[in-house]
Design a binder for these strands. Sequence first.
DNA 1: CGTATGACGAGCC
DNA 2: AGGCTCGCCATAC
Length: 115
Amino acid sequence: MKRSFYQAVYQVVLMIPPGRVTTYGRIANALGSPRASRAVGYALFNTPDGLELPWHRVVNGRGEVSARGGGERPLRQRALLESEGIAFNDDGRIDLRKNCWYPPPCEELWAEQPK
DNA sequence: CGTATGACGAGCC
DNA sequence: AGGCTCGCCATAC
């Protein structure tokens, strides 16, 4: 498989255990680019069809669903997370204290891909 | 190659 | 406290 930053992001997301959530920034940090949180979000935005990706387990740094794109995405995400036992506050936020998951360092996941 | 975009984050007002 | 702006990084065009 061609190793791009996106692919690396997908692999990290795939290793998120059910019932746990992580943030874009943490994924970016795990990949060796702590400032690439935007790119991480963009990677999920370009999620290829046919790939079963638990993208719903990725939230922003405050534990809230990112609703920048459209209206239905966050709703689906919330429903999926709730079905996994993740509780939402009245503000629509997740308790990262309980459900947070820190991805292990995965720099080598894509670092060996020369430009 | 330069510009634009995007599911973010931290900082400033 | 809440909202807005700038910055960072990786692709698409």
